[in-house]
Design a binder for these strands. Sequence first.
DNA 1: CTGGGGTAAGTAACTTTGTTCATC
DNA 2: GGATGAACTTTGTTACTTACCCCA
Length: 976
Amino acid sequence: MRNRDKSKSQTQSSGRLHVNQSIHDAGTLARKSQEGVNKLLRRSSRLSSSGKKEQDGFSLENDLKTNEQEVVHTMDVCNASTVEGCHRDAIENSQAKEQEVVHSMDVCNASNVEDCHRDAIENSQAKDQEVVHSMDAHNASPGDDCHKDTLLDDSEEMNDSDWEDGPILKSDPVDRSPNERMKGLTIEFDEPSGSTGGRKPVRRASAEDKELAELVHKVHLLCLLARGRLIDNACDDSLIQASLLSLLPTHLLKISEVSNITANALTPLVTWFHDNFHVRNLARAERSFRTALATALETHEGTPEEIAALSVALFRALKFTARFVSILDVASLKPEADKYEPSNQAAERVSGGIFSTSTLMVDNLKRASIAASPVQTSPCNEKDGRGKSSRKSKGGCSTSNVAQFRDSTSVNESTDGKSTCQVQPDTSRQCVPKNSLGLKRKGDLEFEMQLAMAISATSVETHENIHDSSDGNNSLEASIPTKRWKRIERVESASCSQGFSTALGSRKVGSPLFWAEVYCDGENLTGKWVHVDAVNAIIDGEQKVEDAAAACKTSLRYVVAFAGHGAKDVTRRFQFFADHMQLESGGTGGTIKVSEHPGENSSLNHVILPEKSGQEVSKEYGSKIEVESSVKDSFVATRNSLEDMELETRALTEPLPTNQQAYKNHALYALERWLTKYQILHPKGPILGFCSGHPVYPRSCVQTLKTRERWLREGLQIKGTETPVKVLEQSTKLKKARVSEDVCDEIDSKETIELYGKWQLEPLLLPRAVNGIVPKNERGQVDVWSEKCLPPGTVHIRLPRVFVVAKRLEIDYAPAMVGFEFRNGRAVPVYDGIVVCTEFKDAILEAYAEEEERRAAEEKKRTEAQAISRWYQLLSSVITRQMLNSYYQDSSSSQPSGNIQDKNIETKTPVQSSKDSKQPTAHWKANNQDTTHTSLVALEVGHEHVFLTKNESFDAENSIRTKRCECGFSIQVEEL
DNA sequence: CTGGGGTAAGTAACTTTGTTCATC
DNA sequence: GGATGAACTTTGTTACTTACCCCA
């Protein structure tokens, strides 16, 4: 135990060391934000991990401690100077069931690999043999480390796949400490599921996980939106615009004079821009985006974000209507199952991921680390790769795609100067280890293929820059053994499997994240928004965006256009989203994912709700939050409505999915066979097409059915002539249960559930209150599910104890039942207040106020009396204590204090008797009910209370007489 | 190889209107 | 004797989701 405590304290101290370090580093706002979010995530992780089952007392005992230190562990193992702490941490970890260190250690730097490996093995043992390990840790003498090392050395040859699978490495009983053997304990362990070939245990995301994922998603989205607005605002900077114009050749200036501009007319301008501005991922000190933009303008180099923003600024300078468009690569709404790793680590990685890798959310300084490998999503690696990030970020490239792509792969390349062709296999290899582990799914292969396609589609002119990017930068990487690469890749593939990709996926595949859109009134007769990717010199190339983005199917995407002080969700414009949906639905082993499109799921709507106020909001596309800077003329309105129409049209013309399961939760289409029990097609048509012979209907035809009671809760009732549109038979079990409850019931009676549709309803018509009588239901109450359920002429007064007032005033009322709660295995109604006729409302409220006032006064009086009594009690105790002290100090005989109790017993009788003799007609009240008090009184050895009349006080109102002894003791007696 | 069908396991949502006993 | 409040025996079923396997 001592040993464990020692290791624990070491862990803690090393943890503190690193925390301090991180605080020291935390000079930036972004880092502070990261810490804040980390806290949230950690808390959540704790909650989730604490919910896991414990198998033994040790785990229970150490659970809290382990959880608290999870984050510290990850930090510890990253630092070469804390190898010892790392090791001991692993021992600590061995007491927990989870394998967080296994994963975080994967990315330790080379110098730590050896130790980390050992630790990981220890952890893998811990998974299955935590009791044994706890004992090792607890009972072993400090010198026992060597036996562990010996043991572990034997495991050095374990292949990489073992790292994730966490196989059993049974400790040799001979190696156990003698203590343990002496105990003769026999501990049996079940074979892991993996070894038996059985079904792997599936840990599914709990509601809490989902809630957290949703929160993270929303917060991330908000941050990205804010970032977009920031950039958009910088694009409006007149100085930047003027500077851009000054750089522009004279002949290109004339372009602004062209009326009815077309996409083709923009070509020379875009070509010029592309030739003059290049993408470089530069590590810059943190500053405002405007400053960064100015620097980019000055140096003609910048991040893809800056270059895209500059293009927008240029278009605006030329009086074009232009907007900055960005793919908001936001954390997933779904907590992707932390199947391969404990959730707390997932959270941790997420926390690192969002802040350390998002190109959008944090500022330029952060972008240095962004440009670095996705591996950096682990904080461990962040430390490990100290100095690496800036080095990596110095690479240059002429296209954003390639720059991003290169950055994502540069770490994985073990040699310098790889061409694109060489890079691709590397990239695709990122998910390969999963395959080797048997964990890979079909979708991952598909992902790789798409990846390759996307890269080939977007990396056209990259060769020189690839060389550019790698030269002299990857010497360290080159020295890292292949084995280590595998680990890194595995970490990455684990990241793939998570929902929290942030900008990770985009960097990985090199899909463009930013571009401009220029409104060309010469296009399409009515004009249209034209995609202009000045960085890659692509005009009207939405398809290319789609191709590239389609590969990033691991996370939900929003495409948002920023203009003026608002944003507009234009995701629908991009076909890739539809593809994405289909891929998610059918591509990954036949699994189905709910459409997360903002148009339907309105995650974006919810998140950006505050921004909508006072702005034009489209009914169909509630996420529309565009405010065209200052001019809200009819032209703008037309442009907006045209775009809305276009978006709607696109929505309606999305291709039909080819596999049936995709229809299950499809936002636009539905198959009858995939409807749930409470759904129906109404009207049943039109048929939009067929899938495997099944007719496809619009989703808008799917109606949800409810029972009469359910509709009642919404303040709706079934029209008189309507018959149930669907009748379900109640389950046989339930029927049996009911029959057994009441045998007299007809056994053949058919319990059915009658369902009605929305179109069969009318507003609830309840009988009106007349003559001050509240209409009640058969139970003599009113079910107040909502305001709509109140009978006309009545009002719901939700005040505690108000029924007393109504009763006193003899006003007719009905208890208001507001719902049910489950108690003792059965549903019990929950009441809240009463329902009375409206005309009595004021009278009741008035009387209630009086009643409450009276009650409050009584309460106050009672509290005060109690307070006074307690004060007396306290003071008398103090005095008694003083007396006892002085008594025993003065007494040279110094009797043992243990005898005090005996004294109490001995002296109790005379004191009590004295009281009793004095109050034959009084009874104890308040303070005297306390037996403690009595015993305290009894403590006063050798003192008999004397209550002199002059010390008495009398409370005439309550008929309470307070008698006081000279010693400070007092009693209150109520006179009869 | 893909998609459909089936199964298993886990989670979420829905269900729904007491009784007895001690104390004041 | 009535009012009040706490304790008791702290559900069970179904729908849905997801992963996986098998087969055509």
